[in-house]
């Protein structure tokens, strides 16, 4: 379980960073999205991995940490809004500057 999560976070981060370094705005947006997925998984793991337990103290011997879940929820909402914004900005650049290079010139 730990290894699987670690590999997933690592792969998402690696692909995200690779795409962020591309010169086309679409690839950069995809990279940002992958990076935010990696962050969300990472935040989940920061409360330690617990399977099949309620996030409430006192109902079972062990419990899942509820705080990272709340953090992930917030991070997802913010990340979603930011992705929407950066897509609109990239489209606007494509329309106004006539190309999709991140520096605005080919």
């Amino acid at each position: 379980m730990e290894a699987l999560i670690a590999i997933a976070i690592g792969a998402l981060t690696g692909c995200g960073v690779y795409l962020l370094l591309r010169a086309r705005s679409f690839a950069v947006v995809l990279g940002l999205t992958l990076l935010s997925y990696a962050v969300n998984l990472f935040l989940f793991a920061s409360g330690r991995l617990v399977v099949g337990k309620p996030p409430i103290i006192g109902t079972a011997d062990t419990f899942a940490d509820p705080l990272p879940q709340a953090l992930v929820l917030t991070a997802i909402v913010i990340g979603f809004a930011m992705t929407a914004f950066v897509i609109m900005l990239a489209l606007r650049m494509r329309a106004d500057l006539g190309n999709d290079h991140v520096d605005g010139r080919d």
């Binding site: 705005s25 950069v28 935010s36 962050v39 935040l43 793991a45 953090l71 900005l89």
Partner: peptide, 28 residues
């Protein structure tokens, strides 16, 4: 403005992702 704006936005979004990694590490 658009050209400079995209760089600003993308860099700050990367910064936000790194901030969350940092917060996760500190919480962990």
């Amino acid at each position: 403005r658009l050209r400079a704006g995209l760089h600003y936005v993308v860099l700050n979004l990367i910064g936000s992702a790194v901030f969350l990694f940092a917060a996760g590490l500190i919480y962990a």
